Simulated assay, not measured.
Amino acid sequence: MTRHTSMLQAIPLALAMVNLATPGALADTPDDVTFDVFRNGSPFGEHRVEFSERPDGRMEVEIDIGLRVGFGPVTVFRYEHESEEVWDGGELVSLTASTLKDGDRTRYALSRDEEGRLISQDGLIEDLVPSSHWSGYMAGLPAVLNTETGEPMDVTIEDLGMDRIETGSGLIDARRYRMTGSVTVDLWYDAEGRWVGCAFSIRGQNIVYRLRDS
């Protein structure tokens, strides 16, 4: 394995920390967000989060991440992640996810049982905020649910205050949060709590999310 390939393979770990405003009421369906993703300034792929209301009034969140590095027709790195979250008010009802990484496809699913507990095929799951990022995190939160693996992930979350961030429509004001775990990830949220930016560095790779439309 080359050093270049090893650096790329570490990126999904950071993306799991990327899924900040305080998590708010989910009575209104949020606006969709699409990010263009850049690696060291070059196009790397996109990350989409789409929201819809189900007939039962619950909110469905579909997340699609596609990243690729290639030389002409030859792909040297590919990462794909698709997940679906279902929310009832401020409570996660179910989550299914599928991830292609290093050529291997992994899947998991979890849902609430009749007693309100989150259950997966492996048993009881700790009731944590998913690391899909769109709903935000409270500063000081000690752990999140890794949306790639379905397992708890210890983190430290700091509120870094107001900042300015570049989007596809220009600079906007946003509050900056930092999530520190195995990788340090910076996240930005606008005045309405909408996720509008992300950036992290890992093994010499600088990854930046730029909101396509603000």
Rank of each mutant, 00 (worst) to 15 (best):
V86I: 13
R105Y: 07
I119E: 01
R39K: 13
G123Y: 14
F77K: 07
S94Q: 07
P55L: 05
G89K: 04
Y108Q: 03
S83Y: 04
E84D: 07
P55Y: 06
I119C: 00
F77R: 07
D104F: 08
L20P: 04
E50V: 15
R107T: 15
P23C: 05
W87R: 07
R39C: 14
G70S: 13
P55K: 09
D56E: 11
E115T: 11
E85T: 10
P30E: 04
T96H: 08
Q121P: 13
E50H: 12
V86M: 00
G45Y: 08
R78G: 11
I119Y: 00
A109W: 07
G89C: 02
H81L: 10
R58V: 09
S111K: 09
M59K: 06
R48D: 12
S111F: 03
F38G: 00
N19D: 09
F38R: 09
E84H: 10
F51N: 02
G72C: 09
G123V: 13
T99E: 10
P30D: 04
D102W: 02
P23R: 04
E60N: 12
G66C: 12
V74E: 01
T106H: 13
T22G: 06
R54Q: 10
R112C: 06
G116E: 03
A25W: 00
K101R: 14
Q121V: 15
V93S: 06
H81Y: 06
G89M: 01
S83W: 03
D36V: 06
R78E: 15
S98Q: 13
D88P: 01
R54H: 02
I119A: 02
S42P: 04
F71S: 12
V37P: 05
Y108W: 11
E80T: 15
T96P: 04
L118S: 07
G123M: 13
G41S: 05
L26Y: 04
R112I: 10
R48F: 06
S94R: 07
A97T: 08
P73E: 12
D102K: 10
E62H: 08
V76M: 15
V93F: 01
A109R: 14
F71G: 09
W87F: 09
D36L: 11
V86C: 00
E46Y: 14
V49K: 03
M59F: 03
L92W: 03
I119K: 05
G45D: 05
F51S: 00
Y108L: 02
A109Y: 08
D32Y: 00
V76N: 12
D104N: 13
D56N: 15
R107S: 14
S120Q: 06
G103Q: 02
L20S: 04
D102G: 14
T96N: 11
M17V: 12
T29M: 01
L110N: 00
L110V: 02
Y79N: 10
D64K: 13
G41V: 07
F71N: 10
D113K: 05
F44A: 06
L95C: 01
H47T: 13
V49R: 05
A21L: 02
S120A: 11
G116V: 07
G116S: 08
T75S: 13
V69F: 08
G116W: 09
I119Q: 04
D104A: 15
F71M: 11
V33Y: 01
E62V: 15
L110D: 02
D56W: 07
V76H: 11
R48N: 13
R117N: 09
T29A: 02
